[in-house]
Structures are given as C-alpha cells and as structure tokens.
Amino acid sequence: MRKYILKRVALLLFTFFIIVTVSFVLIRMLPRELPSDKALADIMLDRWEALGYGKPILVQYLIYLKGIVTAWDFGTSWYVEFRAPVWDLLIERLPPTITVNLFALLISIPIGILLGVLASLKRGKPTDLIISLGVMIFVSVPSYVYAFVVQYVLGYELGWFPLTVYPLSIAGGWLTPKMLYSMFPAILALSFGEVAGLARFTRAEMCEALEAEHMVFSRAKGLRRSYAIRHHALRNALVPILPTIVASVIGVMAGSVIIEEIFSIPGVGQLYIRAINLGDYDVFMMNTVFYTFLGLLSGLAVDLSYGFIDPRIRVGEA
C-alpha cells in the first residue's frame, strides 16, 4: 500500500509539473491588449519590459520556478489587486469560498443520502417518483438558475435574506451568525445540485444493495428489516458514495464561479474570472496551479479512500 501511495504521489507531482509548465507557456503567449493611445501604449510596453515579460519564455519560467522554490513567490497581481502577491490574494479569497461550499456540503450530504435511501426503500412508489423527478430536475438544471430563483424569491420577493453576501464590515467575520445568514441563499443554491447528485447515487447503490443475496440472507436469518438496511445495505452502499464525498470535501476550496458572481462572494471563483478578464497573468497562473493541484489531489484521495473505507479493497495489488 505504501509503495502504491508513493507511486501515486510521484505521478501526481509529475502530472502537476507538466500541466503547470504547459499552462505557464500558454498563458504567457496570450496577446496583451494595449490601449490605442500610442503614448500610453508605449508606457505599458515599457512597464511589461521592466517586469521581465519581454524575456524568452523559458527564462521567464525559470524565474517563476526560482521565485516559488526560494521565496514561495508565485508572482504579483497588477490588475486584480495592484501589486499584491498572488499567493496572498489566493489565501485571502479562500475563506468565503470554503465557508459557502462547506456549508452547502454539510447540508447536502445528509439530505442527499436521506432522500436516496428513502427513494430506494419506496422504489416504484409515489415517494420514489417524486424524489426521482426532483432529482432529475435539479441534476439537469444548472446551479446558477437556482441561484437566480433563490435570490429573487428569498431576497427580492420575500426580503428574508440579503440579495448578496454581507461584507466583513457588516458581518464582522466569515463565520459569524450574520455572515452565515447572508450566505444562506448561496448555500441553498449550491446545495440543490449536490443533494440531487447524492440522492441519485445513493438510490442506485441502495437499490443494488437491497437486492443483493446477503440482504435476503440477513432477512432469512431473522434480522429486522430496519437493522438489515442500516447494517448491511446502507454500509455496502456507502462504499462507493464516500469517496465522492471525499472528493467533494477537497473540492470545497475550488468554489463556484457563477454562484460567487451572483451573490457577490469575493472568493477564488470570482478571482479566476477577474484575472482572465483583466489579463492579470500571474493571478491567472496561480489559479490554474491551484485548481490543477486540487483536481489531482481529489483524484488521488478518491483512489486511496477506497482502501481505507473498505479494507477488502486493495488498490493496485492485483
């Protein structure tokens, strides 16, 4: 197992390096937009030249790597936040993203699993049909559609919640009651898709587990149905579900670009959009590095988690 983990980590790092290198080259090759006023354009060109953007890309890349290795310096933002170190910028934007996504996950997991189990137990009955219909709708419709609906109904029509997430000047922190209250519509909008996805997955796994031979055997052995469901069906069904939850937990840092835009959450998703729109290369690169790392990490975590969740599974040891 240890050998397997080391191999996977080495592969992760290699893949990460390749993606980062390719991204760096592609991002630096993007054309920069210059103002049409030639005097101003000349000043901008001089600035970029002084910042080293005129050097060969390989030299730029080596400077970039040296900065990371020797000073943990991922570059500087010149547009999103003038002269801010991009690492600091990313760290600054993580708390709101994590808060919203984590709460969405905390709501989604129990509700999603609960609905999935319920649907499987009532398979073919009206309850199952209603849940499945809801699941179909919420899986098919993109989350920003709910976001608009939630914002309009809860924020505008009913006025129960603010239209956007509170700033720190009002809420006093990311985990204060005021902040969580203002985040509720965003959390709700993020939860719909997550709940639906989990419910669908749980239902499918539970249906399979309920029809398995060991369940028939359990009942024949004289176990109560509820006991058999809890201890045999659900436990088995959770084996493939839990790794996806592990991936989701890591994914809470990734944020949701559109939800953050709609509810004005200054998170990493919004940062990514701003960096692209403003041509802030170092921020764009930092985000790419960050998302790449998260993606690879969650893939690794999912693979490894199978072995930890169910000791019968031995990954890579066929």
Partner: peptide
C-alpha cells in the same frame, strides 16, 4: 473607512 477587495 473600510475596504474589502472585490466586495465593498
């Protein structure tokens, strides 16, 4: 009085 980047 206060400034929160990309927020307020």
């Amino acid at each position: 009085e206060s400034h929160q980047g990309e927020k307020e």
